[in-house]
Amino acid sequence: MKKLIIPFLLLIALVVSGCGNNSTNKTNNTKNEENKSGTITYQSENGPVKVPANPKRVVVLSSFAGNVMALGVHLVGVDSWSKMNPRFADQLKDAQEVSDENLEKIIELNPDLIIALSTVKNVDKLKQIAPTVTFTYGKVDYLTQHLEIGKLLNKEKEAKEWVDDFKKRATEAGNDIKAKIGENSTVSVIENFNKQLYVYGDNWGRGTEILYQAMHLKMPDKVKETALKNGYYAISTEVLPQFAGDYVILSKSQNQDNSFQKTDTYKNLPAVKNHHVFEANMEEFYFNDPLTLDYQLDFFIKHFLGN
C-alpha cells in the first residue's frame, strides 16, 4: 500500500507545481503584454490603475514632485509649493504651476499621468484627463512612499537603490551625531509661518523623518506629547522654552515676520545661548522626497558635525 501512496503523492506535487508555474507564467505574460502595449497596472490604495509604462508628461498636485524628479521622470505641471522651492527651480523651470481647481490648465498640458494626495479636489474629473493615482499622506512611511512612487513610474529598482543607500548614510550620520552631542540631547524642529510658531513631530517634513526616524535623536517630552500624533502643534513665543530642545532646527523665511527672535524669551533659550540653533530656509526644507532628504541630511551633517 505504501508503495502506491508515494507515487500518488509525487504526482499531486507535480500537478500543484505545474499549476503554480502556470500562474507565475500568466502573471509574467500579463506584465510582458502590458509593457509591450506601453502600460503597466499599478496597485493603488484605491485599486488597480492602468498607467503608462514610461510616462513622459507627469502632473503632480501635491508634495511628490521631488520623488518624480529623483527618478528622472519629466514633469509638465506641479503644485505651487513645489514650484516655489528654490532647490527645484532649475528642474522645474519649464513646468507649469497647476492646481486641482484649474482643470483647463491641466488639460492644456496634455499629461499622461497625474499624481496627487487623496485630499485633492475634482478627482473624478482628473481621471478623465489622464490616469490619476492618489496617496494618503502618512499612510505609509516616507521611504515606503518613495518605493510606491517608484512602482507607479515603473522604476522600483531605482527607488529601492536610493532607499537602501539613504538608510545607510542616515544611520551612519546619526551615530556620529549622537556620539558628539550625547545620547540624551534633545532636538526640536520649529518653524515660523504667518506669525505663528509650530513644532513638528516625526513625519511632517522639515527634516523630522531624518532626525527622529532615521537617526533616532530625542524629541523633547513636550513636543512628543503635543506634536507626535498630528505631526505639528502651534505654540506661542511665551511657551517656547517648554518646547525648545538642546538643539533647535529653525525653519524660517526672510519673507516672514521673525521678530520673535528679538524677544528675551527666545534669546534666553539654552540652545540660543549655546549656539545650537541651526537655521534652515523654510522653502527648501518643507518636503520629504529624495532630493530634499539628501539636502537635509547634508545640512545636519554640516551643522551638527561641522563637516
Rank of each mutant, 00 (worst) to 15 (best):
N25S: 13
L71K: 11
N110T: 04
T136D: 12
S37K: 11
E108N: 07
V60G: 08
S62F: 00
L113I: 01
Y42F: 05
V68H: 11
N102R: 08
Q43I: 00
L71P: 13
S62P: 13
I115T: 07
A53S: 10
S99N: 15
N85P: 03
V68G: 09
H146D: 12
P52Q: 00
G150K: 07
D141M: 06
T30E: 15
V58L: 10
E101Q: 07
S80V: 13
D100M: 10
T136I: 01
S82V: 01
I114A: 04
T27W: 07
T41R: 01
L143P: 01
Y42K: 02
K125R: 10
V120I: 15
N32M: 04
E34D: 09
L109K: 12
Q43K: 02
V59A: 13
T132R: 14
K125A: 11
S62C: 08
V59T: 04
D100Q: 15
V58W: 08
G72K: 04
K83R: 10
M69W: 06
N122V: 04
D90P: 14
K127E: 07
T144Q: 15
L109V: 08
V60Q: 02
E33S: 07
V133R: 07
N67Q: 13
I149Q: 11
L92A: 09
K56Q: 10
K50W: 05
V140L: 06
K50P: 11
N29S: 03
S63L: 01
K155D: 03
G66T: 03
T119S: 14
L71H: 10
K139W: 01
N85E: 06
D79A: 11
W81L: 14
M84Y: 09
A130Q: 06
N67K: 11
T24I: 07
T136A: 13
L117N: 15
N46K: 08
K151R: 15
E148C: 05
E104K: 12
S63R: 09
S37C: 08
N32T: 06
D112K: 03
K36L: 08
S118Q: 14
L109W: 11
N110R: 08
E34N: 15
E108W: 02
N21V: 06
K93I: 01
S62I: 00
T119F: 14
N102H: 10
V120E: 14
K127F: 03
N67S: 14
D79L: 10
V78Q: 09
L153M: 09
N25H: 13
D79V: 12
D112P: 14
S44L: 02
K155N: 04
V51E: 04
I107C: 08
S118D: 14
V133F: 06
L61H: 06
V76H: 12
G66M: 07
I115Y: 11
V58H: 13
S23I: 06
D94L: 05
K151Y: 06
K36Y: 03
N25R: 05
L153I: 01
N29C: 00
F88Y: 15
N22H: 11
N154G: 12
N122C: 14
P131L: 02
G66S: 07
F135D: 02
N67P: 15
V49F: 05
E97W: 02
N110C: 10
K26W: 02
P131A: 00
L126C: 09
K50F: 00
D90S: 15
Y42R: 00
K36P: 07
N54Q: 09
L75Y: 12
K26Q: 12
D90M: 09
K83I: 04
Q128F: 01
P86H: 02
K155H: 15
